[in-house]
Amino acid sequence: MNYRELLARFLPSQDDYKAEIFAIAGWLVWNRRNAIHFNRAVRPVDSICREAGSFLQEFLQARENEQSSSRPQVTQKWRPPAPNIYKINFDAVVFRASNLAGLGVIAPNLTYSFV
């Protein structure tokens, strides 16, 4: 069986766990191949399946902890500012070569530009 056939057998699997283990094991094989290529320390081939399972369990546990510890989302709603209160957005630029500067200001219903 070549890699394409192997991949075709695992990815459409109804069992997500098998597909995830296969993807992680594929990454570990690729990572091992690169370690050999670049003369780095190499993990034994017979540890790949065990490591893939450990990585997946660690990921699932972290995801479970994250979901259980997340705070309820606060719903925010936009409100216009109170009367006589303005939100102002601005940006500025300095042109050192020409010794000039520019400033742009945007306020509700008003736009100013200074150079």
Rank of each mutant, 00 (worst) to 15 (best):
residue 65 N to V: 05
residue 6 L to M: 14
residue 109 N to C: 05
residue 18 K to E: 09
residue 83 P to S: 09
residue 102 G to P: 03
residue 107 A to G: 09
residue 44 P to Y: 00
residue 12 P to K: 13
residue 50 R to E: 02
residue 52 A to V: 00
residue 27 W to P: 00
residue 81 P to M: 06
residue 83 P to L: 06
residue 47 S to G: 01
residue 89 N to C: 09
residue 34 N to T: 04
residue 108 P to N: 11
residue 113 S to G: 07
residue 1 M to A: 11
residue 110 L to E: 08
residue 37 H to I: 01
residue 20 E to Q: 15
residue 9 R to W: 11
residue 68 S to F: 05
residue 66 E to G: 08
residue 10 F to S: 02
residue 112 Y to Q: 11
residue 84 N to C: 05
residue 108 P to Y: 06
residue 114 F to R: 14
residue 9 R to V: 07
residue 90 F to R: 11
residue 34 N to L: 05
residue 39 N to K: 15
residue 32 R to Y: 03
residue 30 W to T: 07
residue 67 Q to T: 10
residue 104 G to N: 08
residue 95 F to I: 07
residue 62 A to I: 07
residue 94 V to R: 13
residue 104 G to W: 01
residue 62 A to N: 14
residue 28 L to W: 01
residue 55 F to L: 04
residue 27 W to S: 01
residue 67 Q to M: 10
residue 23 A to P: 00
residue 43 R to A: 04
residue 25 A to V: 02
residue 86 Y to L: 13
residue 53 G to M: 02
residue 101 A to T: 15
residue 78 W to K: 12
residue 28 L to I: 03
residue 89 N to T: 10
residue 19 A to L: 04
residue 105 V to M: 14
residue 5 E to D: 15
residue 27 W to Q: 08
residue 114 F to A: 14
residue 59 F to Q: 13
residue 105 V to H: 03
residue 14 Q to C: 03
residue 8 A to S: 14
residue 57 Q to D: 11
residue 55 F to K: 13
residue 77 K to H: 09
residue 91 D to C: 07
residue 4 R to A: 13
residue 49 C to Q: 09
residue 40 R to N: 08
residue 101 A to P: 01
residue 44 P to H: 01
residue 21 I to Q: 02
residue 82 A to F: 05
residue 40 R to S: 02
residue 85 I to A: 08
residue 5 E to Y: 14
residue 51 E to D: 06
residue 29 V to D: 00
residue 110 L to G: 01
residue 32 R to K: 10
residue 47 S to Y: 03
residue 67 Q to V: 07
residue 16 D to T: 08
residue 98 S to W: 07
residue 46 D to F: 01
residue 42 V to A: 02
residue 57 Q to R: 14
residue 75 T to F: 04
residue 24 I to M: 06
residue 110 L to K: 15
residue 71 R to M: 03
residue 108 P to S: 06
residue 7 L to V: 06
residue 46 D to S: 08
residue 52 A to G: 00
residue 4 R to D: 10
residue 14 Q to L: 08
residue 13 S to R: 15
residue 25 A to E: 04
residue 58 E to W: 06
residue 8 A to N: 15
residue 89 N to M: 05
residue 23 A to K: 09
residue 114 F to E: 08
residue 15 D to A: 05
residue 44 P to G: 00
residue 60 L to S: 08
residue 15 D to C: 10
residue 65 N to A: 12
residue 4 R to K: 14
residue 84 N to Q: 10
residue 26 G to V: 01
residue 86 Y to V: 12
residue 106 I to K: 13
residue 20 E to V: 04
residue 10 F to N: 02
residue 49 C to N: 11
residue 63 R to Y: 07
residue 80 P to Q: 12
residue 25 A to C: 09
residue 115 V to W: 05
